[in-house]
Design a protein around this nucleic acid. Structure first.
Length: 261
DNA sequence: CTAATAATAT
DNA sequence: GATATTATTA
């Protein structure tokens, strides 16, 4: 089965374009601020889950912020919409876990590595929990037709084999710097599709993954519609976390700006 | 952090 | 109403 170990990554890296990868997800992160700014409080009629394939538009190119109302400051204490784990997002998750190694694959670290703005530790923790259950279930019974999301991303063999420890994950080849060029979190209600907000998300600076910071940042953006973040921006930050990895971990990740997803 | 349970969406 | 997904709590 060793051969598979060599191959699995090859196949993985091959990155075969699955339908999910191809579909243009128009999912952007809508901050509570924006939500309220738009007068959309909690429309659960349809706001929750955007059907993956029913979301046609891709008007994300516009960096315009409709109606930057003046009185939207309280980003705190507001409940942000449910996070929707898209295949892409999940892939980032899996990548992060894989590259961190099971050992360091804890919510906090994963979150940091993912560098997905707006993503909280709780989000990752919850997803990680479910992911572990999925792995377990897979070892046991196998064919699970329910876990469509998880099935969309290949599961590194390492995950299945050992339950804990093992840092062999370090030898993993080229690591894709998880740059947050266009991340999709939370689904925009259909109503909003008209005024689709293209939230340009940059990775967190040094370690400020705080929601507050993030929110503040987005707000700033709203007021300064002059952002065209280039890749440069990104990897300078990405390079940062290298030190943050496990103290024993020497095999630092090779981070180049890749526009994978 | 992890596991269990509640809440919410489909 | 049941099931799946995510959030919250222990």
């Amino acid at each position: 089965m060793r051969e598979e170990d060599s191959n699995w990554f090859a196949k993985w890296e091959e990155e075969l374009p699955s339908p999910e990868e191809l579909i243009p997800l128009s999912q952007s992160l809508i901050t509570p601020d924006l939500a309220i700014a738009f007068d959309l409080h909690r429309d659960n009629s349809n706001s929750g889950q955007p059907l993956p394939q029913t979301t046609p538009p891709q008007p994300n190119s516009s960096t315009e912020f409709a109606g930057d109302s003046t009185g939207d400051e309280p980003a705190r204490t507001l409940k942000r919409p449910r996070l929707v784990w898209t295949p892409q997002l999940h892939k980032r998750f899996v990548d992060a876990v894989a590259h961190l190694g099971i050992k360091n694959a804890v919510p906090k670290t994963i979150m940091q590595l993912m560098s997905v703005d707006g993503l909280t530790r709780e989000n990752v923790a919850s997803h990680l929990q479910k992911y572990r259950l999925y792995l377990k279930r897979m070892q046991s019974g196998g064919g699970g037709d329910s876990d469509h999301l998880f099935a969309s991303s290949p599961v590194p063999p390492h995950f299945l084999h050992q339950t804990s420890r093992q840092s062999s994950d370090l030898f993993i080849p080229s690591f894709v710097p998880i740059s947050t060029q266009q991340q999709h979190i939370a689904a925009p209600p259909s109503q909003f599709l008209h005024r689709q907000i293209s939230a340009v998300n940059f990775t967190s600076p040094t370690k400020a993954t705080d929601q507050t910071t993030f929110l503040a940042r987005q707000q700033s953006q709203l007021q300064q519609p002059v952002f065209r973040p280039s890749s440069l921006h990104l990897h300078s930050q990405v390079a940062n976390y290298t030190q943050d990895l496990d103290s024993g971990a020497k095999t630092v990740l090779t981070l180049f700006p890749t526009r994978d997803d």
